[in-house]
Design a binder for these strands. Structure first.
Lengths: 245, 245
DNA sequence: CGAAGGCTTGATAGACCTCAAACACAGTGG
DNA sequence: CCACTGTGTTTGAGGTCTATCAAGCCTTCG
């Protein structure tokens, strides 16, 4: 594959993603395609950006599965979000110099690194894109809020169901989930770190969800027999994702 | 007080707040002072913006104490943040049309309502201010993340101490907290809703904090005898607030 | 085939919740 | 001036959700 073709294929997830939350003009799409970027493949469980770093580039997920997390002083970990192809999890570093958490891969992932300078130029020349990216960070914040609600007020059962719903909707928006389900390359331990639960408890609740026929999960592949029922179980309402359709 | 003077006094908290997170030019400050706004006083426990609304203006807190919250389907409430003079809690409505939560007062509060249109004009004419406001929403998101960490991985004891630390730092940044402490017009019930705890448990933990000499709290007034110790108790590190100094 | 990582299960413990009631205090009205 | 009311705080008792510890199992992979 030629470099140009590779680049075009690379940027596609981002176009799909932005297209799911804003409407872009052809000119804006072209400008996005012209962004300079370096593509890098990361092994599973490796950091892309670390707590305390002062990044000079943003990372765009092209393939794989990435998470935002922080390790506490006592060594325990809190995962604060999962990121999928098309997402730019550290867009905030454009305006917040110091990272107050880390971003790392869950599985082998290919990541495009885009210099801050290029992004800044792009945004000053295309106010519509600036609005789009700002909106993207605001939706990120809305997801944080929804996770807060979950950890503050929802049971483990609801929380897990809710997360599985959120991932379905987001993956579907970028064409990575079919009607029936999607690939979920996340261990039960990682689910626990994301939801504020122990691995053991995650395992037990997953079994509950399975025995009630809400999910079929094996080998990193999730099947959802009854989408409506799972949404009810998770008290899930996709409004907070602010998708266009 | 003349209208002009009133307006100038009104915008001051905003200037202080923005000044604590970015550096503003004199021209930008002048432009902020020229923002048209309507000032309105809200009773305690009343909504400023409601879940589902499509606001056409943003609200700037001038005095009082405001919170961001959502009521779940079972009637329980999760408070997702406290907002103090100088904050614009629904800045996000500039780019997210539908509110996915509510914003309401805790005590009598005076609020300036600024039309979206005026803000949008301001931001296109002053890119520096656009960056400043974007940064403000990113810091908001950083606070959400920190609360997530608390609810996911910290004990009730740590969570309460952490919240008291956060409020001290933020209030201090706008000149509303002295060395020793600050006014905390928040009931134990509201603290519970914010931290994902029951009122009863909040009460018991507050007593623990008191008996260990970490806080002196009575009648809505908080005194912190040992700032260092409270930070340790709450595992508090102000980095996530991204203050300039 | 052994090692490693992830999944599953059992037993026990603890943090926090719920229910229920008493107490304190400020504001209101007679 | 004093009951009366309402809101917020405090205390007690019991229950439950979830964590922790510990071990066994299964699959994958070198």
């Amino acid at each position: 594959m030629s470099f140009a073709m590779q680049k075009q294929a690379s940027t596609r997830p981002l176009l799909w993603k932005l297209d799911s939350i804003v409407s872009l003009s052809d000119e804006e799409k072209r400008a996005l395609l012209d962004l300079p970027m370096t593509i890098k493949v990361f092994d599973p469980d490796s950091d892309i950006v670390r707590d305390g770093d002062r990044p000079s580039e943003c990372c765009l997920v092209l393939s794989g599965f990435v998470c935002r997390y922080k390790v506490l002083s006592d060594g325990r970990r809190q995962i604060m979000g999962f990121y999928i192809p098309g997402d730019i999890p550290d867009l905030q570093s454009l305006h917040l110099n110091v990272m107050d958490h880390s971003i790392g891969t869950l599985v082998t992932s290919s990541i495009a690194l885009i210099p801050h300078e290029s992004l800044r130029n792009l945004l000053t020349q295309h106010p519509g894109l600036a609005a789009a990216f700002w909106r993207d960070t605001l939706i990120d914040a809305a997801m944080f809020r929804e996770w807060m609600i979950g950890m503050g007020r929802r049971s483990a059962y609801q929380r897990i169901a809710h997360l599985l719903c959120e991932l379905r909707v987001r993956l579907k928006a970028v064409g990575l989930a079919g009607e029936g389900g999607y690939d979920l390359p996340v261990t039960q331990n990682e689910l626990g770190d994301a939801l504020g639960l122990s691995t053991v408890h995650v395992n037990r609740v997953l079994q509950d969800l399975r025995s009630e026929g809400l999910i079929v999960l094996r080998g990193g592949s999730l099947h959802i027999p009854d989408w409506e029922a799972l949404q009810v179980a998770g008290d899930f309402d996709p409004t907070y994702l602010h998708l266009r359709r």
